[in-house]
Simulated scan of single mutants.
Amino acid sequence: MPKIDLDAIEPALGCSYPAPYDQPLARRTARDVGAAGGLTDFVAIHVVLPPGCWSSQRHWHEGEDELVAVLSGEAVLIDDHGRRPMKAGDVATFPKNDGNGHYLINESDRDCILIGVSLPERSLVHYPDIDLLWSPETGETHVDGTPY
């Protein structure tokens, strides 16, 4: 497969979280480079976080490992172990079902570009700081299972 042309992939702006949980991600752009290249075994997403933007709400997956690599700029990884700066070339991994909620926030004054890799979501995703649970059967619900 030839080199992926990022400009040829329509970026998705923001996220699908219900309000008000979508606000910290409103300016985030994501491009599914894996799908654009014909990949089907795993997901690879190219993400741009403008200053002040979050990668996601703090979350963890029951059944999917995740890997995030910072390509340029910098962000702060926030998880159950605290805050750690990440810069271009840094990689973070999140084993499935470890219960360690995580996300990145761009606290710098320039864009942070990263790539995230995982399996397609097929299990519960937990959001420990907010009233949100994602399931492959129901999508986003309140933690008690009632729909948004």
Rank of each mutant, 00 (worst) to 15 (best):
Ser135Leu: 06
Asp131Arg: 01
Asp111Glu: 15
Met1Pro: 06
Lys87Cys: 11
His102Thr: 01
Asp41Val: 10
Gln23Val: 14
Asn100Thr: 01
Glu121Lys: 06
Thr138Cys: 04
Tyr148Trp: 10
Leu25Cys: 12
Asp111Met: 10
His102Gly: 02
Trp134Thr: 05
Asp80Gln: 10
Asp7Asn: 13
Lys96Ser: 05
Lys87Ser: 15
Gly99Cys: 05
Asp131Trp: 02
Thr29Phe: 10
Glu10Asn: 04
Met86Phe: 08
Asn97Leu: 01
Ala35Trp: 07
Val70Ala: 11
Asp22Asn: 15
Asp32Ser: 06
Ser123Cys: 07
Trp54His: 15
Leu114Lys: 04
Ala30Val: 14
Asp98Phe: 03
Phe42Thr: 12
Asp65Arg: 02
Glu121Phe: 12
Arg122Ile: 11
Thr146Leu: 10
Gly89Ser: 03
Leu67Gly: 05
Arg31Ile: 08
Gly116Val: 03
Lys96Ile: 01
Ala19Arg: 11
Pro147Thr: 15
Thr40Phe: 09
Tyr21Gln: 04
Leu49Ile: 11
His46Met: 10
Phe42Ser: 13
Met86Lys: 07
Gly116Arg: 09
Asp41Trp: 10
Glu121Trp: 09
Leu25Asn: 06
Ala75Trp: 04
Arg84Tyr: 07
Gly52Glu: 02
Ser72Glu: 15
Asn97Arg: 03
Ala36Val: 08
Asp144Thr: 10
Arg28Pro: 03
Lys3Val: 14
His46Thr: 09
Asp7Thr: 12
Glu137His: 07
Asn106Pro: 00
Glu140His: 14
Ser123Gln: 05
Ala12Pro: 00
Tyr17Phe: 12
Pro20Phe: 01
Gly34Arg: 08
Thr138Val: 04
Asp79Arg: 07
His81Tyr: 10
Gly101Asn: 08
Arg122Gln: 13
Glu137Lys: 13
Ile105Asn: 07
Leu6Ser: 07
Pro18Ser: 01
Asp7His: 08
Pro18Tyr: 00
Arg122Ser: 13
Tyr103Ser: 12
Arg27Gln: 15
Val47Arg: 13
Val91Arg: 02
Leu124Trp: 06
Arg58Trp: 04
Thr93Asn: 00
Ala30Trp: 05
Trp54Arg: 14
Val33Met: 11
Asp5Met: 07
Pro120Ala: 12
